[in-house]
Design a protein around this nucleic acid. Structure first.
Lengths: 340, 340
DNA sequence: TTGTAGGCGTTATCAA
DNA sequence: TTGATAACGCCTACAA
């Protein structure tokens, strides 16, 4: 089945292609009668504009690109859901790429998107991303760029984040108020801003409550397998001396699950012996036993917000109107469950 | 930063556009010297072909479309990962759409993809899909189509699936061999083939082992929230009489988690009082306590396989060569854990 | 009110 | 070996 073109409609009605084109787009300088005839036939033979031609003319694809570290993370799949939903409603389709926490891949993917002529880019950086030329390149191509969740402060563009530092602070403060004193932190990798911020929030909460910060209670999770990281770090910590800690605050729920698994395997009770506090609020965290206290991170809303900003910038860009970058901080909330 | 065009290269080197084009694509009828000059300059000024123009000329976008019920399902996000990975390697980008188990949305999304001029479609049907004209439409547009996981037998095209019936049979048979006799089934919605097949496998396993099939032990999960479905159906079943069953086989792991949650809330021990058996092997199933026995469903491989078939068909289609539809059945395996 | 013509950037045919 | 030219399908300034 060959697609219908303007030309076919024009021939069938014995008028010019230009008139058909204008009729379909309701130009004021086409007679009502002609419009009617054109539209009727177009509908009948199922005319759909060839999007390749439209792209070429308008220099826009109505496609946006998204790069995320992984879709198997509950948080990111929620973000993606928000992105796709809003984009679709506004007539945009979404190309999804996964960096798998790989910086080289992330750079290559930026190029792929740019070469495809996407209208805008949404990205959450990989843990290994430590330079930002590839992001600057997007901007230099006059393609709007919005960073979300895992961002960098080194690039001037719109951003949608949570206040990681504050969220971590509040979580740790909660633990302290509950009476925990020896609080370990299983932090994320060294590069990501959110990993840094959560660590700083943790540290600050300790200091503000007159608890000495002990760097020996901080473990890094950077082996690209959160569950294993949680399990192994718990092992290291506990094997050193299980009375070193009475609570563990982790960079993400999956790490917390690994921790709990190790503790359970070793007959250490949660939260009686050691409390565990996660981050992100994966679905899993609510159904585990014990269910896991965590910080709820609004993924779906983040996706929606990020894409809305991006689409707005695309619109301005297209009209050559200037616009200011947005920096949205979405609220989080503490979810207290059985593990703390 | 304006993109570089062939024209600019041609002007700079005082040769024709045609020659530049051919030189860059290593046509045999361009002198080596010219090729060298062209390529050198192209590289220097960072020439990238305008993909809109290429699309228009070649009538292909090098983009494939994927429709899945949801990305937040561990299984589908794994499939997606496989799809994106292989596609990317072969030079294709992937547009992702989510039907959210909504048939109307699914139909609209097919149109969106078709109108965008994607080169092929991968789809896993929503639970509510009960007619297949939209799929036929894809085929009528000469766009290759591959169904995976949630398929229909009513459309002639390539398919990648598991043997749901057999997998369910083996799972239930395992339960029977373990000594369970009163085995309930929390099945999926009525339309999906895999839901039907798992049910049939369950039934057959009972019959083959001289256990009477009792339709009162079959509950349907179709409220679009697997966890709740599991919880509520368990509630209904147990409240009727908790000695009615000694095992529950569920359509998917999340239902199983809902079941376990209810049982735990009501002091019913798993597996001592009632065993639970899931399906799909979500990551969650392995870290829960009790960990959940399940059928491992190879999502990543399914995605890879499906996209490979699709790309092959795209290639053949483009050359107007005929091809046979593939029907791949991927192996599953039983994962026995604590819950059974 | 309608139509002509040029162009978006690339590819491919055919003549030089 | 190179280049002129048409074509992909659509849009739009301008002429009729």
């Amino acid at each position: 089945m060959k697609p219908v073109t303007l030309k076919q409609i024009a021939e069938e009605l014995h008028i010019s292609i230009a008139t058909v084109s204008k009729a379909l787009k309701d130009y004021p300088d086409v007679s009502k009668k002609t419009k009617k005839r054109v539209k009727k036939l177009a509908k009948k033979i199922n005319y759909v504009p060839n999007s390749f031609a439209v792209n070429l003319r308008t220099k826009s694809s109505k496609i946006i690109g998204v790069i995320i570290p992984a879709t198997v993370h509950h948080f990111f799949s929620n973000v993606l859901k928000g992105i796709v939903k809003v984009a679709e409603k506004k007539g945009y389709l979404v190309i999804v790429l996964q960096s798998n926490e790989n910086f080289e891949l992330e750079k290559r993917q930026i190029n792929l998107l740019l070469n495809k002529g996407i209208d805008g880019v949404l990205i959450s950086l990989s843990n290994k991303t430590n330079s930002y030329k590839h992001l600057q390149k997007v901007i230099d191509h006059d393609v709007p760029l919005v960073l979300f969740d895992k961002i960098t402060k080194n690039i001037k563009c719109s951003k949608v984040i949570i206040n990681d530092r504050q969220a971590a602070y509040i979580a740790v403060e909660y633990l302290i108020k509950k009476g925990y004193r020896k609080i370990a932190h299983f932090r994320g990798d060294l590069n990501p801003q959110n990993s840094i911020d959560r660590f700083l929030g943790y540290k600050q909460a300790l200091l503000d409550n007159n608890i000495e910060f002990d760097k020996n209670l901080v473990y890094i999770c950077n082996n690209n397998d959160d569950f294993e990281d949680g399990y192994n770090n718990a092992k290291k910590l506990i094997e050193k001396d299980k009375h070193l800690v009475d609570a563990i605050f982790t960079i993400t729920d999956v790490v917390a699950i690994g921790v709990i698994k190790y503790l359970r395997d070793n007959k250490i009770k949660v939260p009686e012996d050691i409390a565990v506090f996660g981050f992100s609020d994966w679905f899993m965290a609510s159904v585990m036993s014990p269910s896991i206290s965590t910080v709820h991170q609004p993924g779906f809303e983040m996706g929606k917000k990020a894409v809305k900003i991006l689409l707005k910038e695309i619109k301005f860009q297209k009209k050559n109107k200037p616009f200011n970058f947005s920096e949205i901080v979405l609220p989080t909330k503490l979810i207290i469950r059985e593990s703390s």
